[in-house]
Amino acid sequence: MRLKDFKRSVHRILPTSNQRFFYGQQCFALSYRTMASPKITSATHTLLHTALMAEARPLINYYKLQSLSDQVFRTWSNGLITLVVSGMGKVKAASATAVTLDSLPRNSICLNIGIAGSDQPIGQLLRAHCIVDAATKQRWYPQLTATSDIPTTSVCTVDQPAIEYDKLTSFDMEAAGFYQAALMYGTSELTQSIKVISDNPSMPILSDGSKLDANFVSDLIEAQLEPVEHFINELSGLAANLPAGENLDSLFQAWCTQYRFTVTEQRQLKRQLQRYWSLFHQLPDEDLARKQGKPAVLIKYLEQQLTKQSICY
């Protein structure tokens, strides 16, 4: 099994079972109740992205994440939360985000967490309401649909560490790369960036980066774990409003594997199964396809069943 498929299957099984999964030499003891952190309030998958190991460490410990081997970027997971460390810069941030999201379910929660410079107190937690790529001037507005008490800021992603400070703007080096890549896999309401202020005019970053002491950075993130967790839970609550979809995947896959549906027929079948589910609150019997013999006949039969049905208000 490829890692991608493995992760998908893990995701599908997760909410109901306590099992061990093997991928290569790795063993994942995954249980929704026991292994995943009890602090997570929903089954929506969450990707956390940081640039630095020092930013990641407090999150890895807090969410009890296990390291995954054979990854392009250093990655940890507990089955529901995956964390990737990209290294510094927007290109690495974009690559790590895309590579990791490629093996996670669509519309996962994606959160960039990292330090930034601003004319704000050291340790201040801020949420991006706008992300600007300083080099291209491209701008994004992460939708602030999930409620949060975290004050907002404009985040400007620069290619070199910034030594100018502004009250309304926080400077980082990754948010634009992360955001652009994450939006290819998800939706703006669930794709967010939060920053902890690590340097300001009274404590500026030095051009040799010597202020970026790893323990100092880890401490800054660690101090904000509670509001970060609260924010993730708000996002999870919001994500719970997305349609489930997964319930008909297995029957759809089973029929598509057993019978030859054209692309158009597959599209029709998928929508018919959705309609069937919404009207009958169950799926057709798996044996139905065999009884109908041909895909076209099955689709015609299902359409007849669906057309007959009406709703009583």
């Binding site: 703006s188 309401e189 409003n241």
Partner: peptide, 13 residues
Amino acid sequence: PKAQNFRLQKKNP
């Protein structure tokens, strides 16, 4: 912009 979800935004526009 694309990559927005109308259903989610309806919860808190």
